[in-house]
């Protein structure tokens, strides 16, 4: 069984008149990139702040690499990096000075080298001598991410990292997150914009009204869906394909160019069987895509959509 890098058990956080997080249990293994998904007010930020130690919980435990937040806060601080959903920077410091402040605080060895590395990783080398107040929102976001990466934490908590960014900034951030995934960081990333997370999350946890609705790998979540939506395209024998699909139990067929989308109630094996039947019957399938591995699809079917 893989070693959970981040483990949250029965977490509950109360605010006056509201239970912000209610009995949340979640594990993220080493190297996982887990998307914490939910509408505004679902409890994502509260969960992140509680895991980082900024918010007090009513009950529950949080462990990072086996170290518990309550008893070993110092160990946890060294292993965990938290990037909030805004940009806390000293406006009158340069980017390098800002990173130097935190490099000293984390007692990072060979500060100058590490600062240069983090600036390069976040494409801010050219802006190293610019005052923080002169940086754009996207650059500030990247600078805060660079600050978070300074002590080389094992676990990264990124709270709505793309909020307020323009499309270009989002693309840059996306590239950066892919890089982090490649270097094997464990990442818990929250967002209510699903397209931000699609593509680089291998796990997802869906929250609604403080509760965890479902969690698991994208594939597991997709398989757990009933009536999942599929997309198929072909080059010819379209009529035959439609007949076969209907015969196999496909519902709500909608025509698209050179194909259809449809809902299918069977499990993954049944889907495999359906594809095999189509091919054997002479349908030249050019695209076979399960919408079930799409975060948007998972989210919409999770029951959390009421708040959107």
């Amino acid at each position: 069984m893989p070693n959970p890098m981040l483990s949250i058990e029965h977490l509950r956080v109360d605010f006056p008149g509201v239970v912000a997080v209610d009995d949340l249990s979640l594990t993220v293994e080493a190297g996982d990139v887990c998307g914490l998904i939910g509408p505004n007010g679902a409890g994502k930020t509260t969960t992140m702040r509680t895991v980082s130690g900024l918010q007090e919980s009513t009950r529950g435990t949080v462990k990072v690499d086996g170290h518990e937040l309550t008893s070993e806060p110092g160990e946890l601080k060294r292993r965990l990096g938290f990037m909030p959903d805004f940009c806390p920077v000293y406006d009158q410091l340069t980017a390098t000075e800002f990173l130097d402040h935190f490099a000293r605080a984390y007692v990072v060895p060979d500060r100058a080298k590490r600062i240069a590395e983090c600036l390069e990783l976040t494409w801010l080398t050219e802006k190293r001598d610019a005052l923080c107040e002169e940086l754009s929102r996207g650059m500030k976001q990247r600078l805060v991410l660079a600050k978070t990466l300074l002590p080389d934490p094992q676990v990264l908590l990124l709270d709505e990292p793309a909020s307020g960014l323009d499309p270009l900034g989002r693309i840059e951030l996306r590239k950066l997150l892919l890089q982090l995934r490649e270097v094997g960081k464990t990442v818990l990333i929250s967002s209510h914009i699903l397209t931000e997370l699609s593509g680089f999350c291998n796990k997802a946890a869906i929250m609604e009204r403080g509760r965890l609705v479902m969690s698991g790998t994208i594939a597991e979540l997709g398989q757990a869906m009933t009536g999942r939506r599929m997309s198929v395209k072909w080059r010819d024998a379209g009529d035959r394909a439609l007949q076969l699909l209907k015969a196999a139990g496909a519902k709500n067929l909608e025509a698209v160019a050179q194909g259809v989308t449809f809902e299918f109630g069977g499990d993954a094996d049944a889907l495999d069987g359906l594809l095999k039947t189509l091919v054997v019957e002479g349908v030249r399938v050019t695209e076979w895509r399960g919408s079930g591995d799409d975060l948007e699809q998972i989210f919409l079917q999770s029951g959390a959509k009421e708040l959107m």
Partner: peptide, 10 residues
């Protein structure tokens, strides 16, 4: 009343 759990704090 619920089961007492450990408190998470900084």
């Amino acid at each position: 009343p619920g089961p007492p759990g450990k408190q998470v704090q900084n």
